[in-house]
Every structure is written in C-alpha cells, then in structure tokens.
Amino acid sequence: MQEVIFTIYESLPYILGGCLVTLACVSVALLIGLTLGVPLAVGQVYGAAPLRFFISTYVWFFRGCPLLVQLYIFFYGIFWPLFELSALASSCIVLGLTSAAYQSQIFRGAIEAIPQGQLKAARALGLRDSNGIGFIVLPQAMRLAIPGWSNEFSILLKDSALIYLLGASDTMARIHQMATTTNMHFAFSLLAGVIYFVITLVGLKLLRGLEQKIHIPGYQKA
C-alpha cells in the first residue's frame, strides 16, 4: 500500500503535466467547435436549401460515427500523410470538428427558441438581416445556449481521453504508461478517474460562474 502511494506521489508531476495537455486540447477543440458551430447553426436555420443539406450531412457524419473511428480516419487518412501534423494537433482538430457538429445543434436549438418577433422588430427598424441575426438574435441565443455548452465541455473532456490512441501525451497516455511500467493498473486507473472527475467539477463550476456573470435580470425566468 505504502509503495503504491509513494509511486503515485512520485509520478504526479508527470501525470499533472498530462493534464495540461488534456486541458489545452479541450480548450482548442471547444474554440474550434464554437467558431464553426455558430455559423453552422445560423446556416441551418436561415440558410438556403443546399447549404442546409450540406450542414445536416456534416452533422450527421460527426454525430453518427464514434470519435475513435474519426480520429483514425482523419489522422491516418489526411492530417499525417498530407500535412505531417502531430497526433496532438490532429486530435485537437478532430475533436473540434466533432464538437462543432454538437455545438451547432445546441445553438440551433437556442436560435429557434428566440421568439420570431425579435428578428421582425429588427427588420422593422430597418436593420439588415445579417445585423438582426448578429446583434439581436445571437446575443440572446448564446445566453440560452450556455447550459448546453457547459455540458459540451464535460463531454469533450471525457472524449479527449481517447487521443492517447494516436500517441498524444495527454493524461490518459501518461496514466497508461505508468500503469504498465509499474504494473499497478488498479491504483492508476482509480487515479485517472479521480483526476477527470475533479477537472469536470472544477470546469463546470467555472462555467456556472460565467452563466451568472452574463445573466440578464428577469431573462428566461418565466
């Protein structure tokens, strides 16, 4: 028992370094997902038929196929042979593309929840549709989307535990490595559980704080 505790203690700096890799990957993926997800959502709600079809196909593919399979397809099929991208960079992009599909659905739901009258009022004031959407609908929709978005963070964090399969040196990779070299599988797998659990809780707490911060009094209280 003592030996196990000592080994874990010794390996902590190494594993926590992996946590930074995990967090960096999740942050980049969330950001990619956000920058692609919002236009995808707007396109799916307001776009022309061909655009809507393209977007639904994109969403269908990324939501219908396990992340593991996507990681392999994109890394071995595109990112590595064509651009020699590292495992970590490729993983960030694939996670980001997947997240964009999910986030677009969160934002679409939020946009559709905004009463039609808001955009009509903007048009009646003479705003162009792009401005009406950008300055009236989206700021409201983004607030509505935050709970779903927090959830997306926790899903991405958990999904990122798969990127070690491509050879990225994240939390899971380092846990796996320590478990195999020390042959303390059980202890290290428990440690992994604790680490991911703590990151999830802390992350959700921070996002809840954000939610409070941009809350508009009386909005969505009915």
Binding site: D159, M172, S189, A192, Y196, F197, L201
Partner: peptide
Amino acid sequence: TVIRGVPLIIQLFILYNA
C-alpha cells in the same frame, strides 16, 4: 455525478482491473 464525471474508457479500465 461520479459516472457522468469520469470518461467511460476509464470506467471500463477500472472495472477490468478491479
């Protein structure tokens, strides 16, 4: 809360080892 806070792959890992 615990199940939702821990990646499934780690749950399987724990289960398989525990």
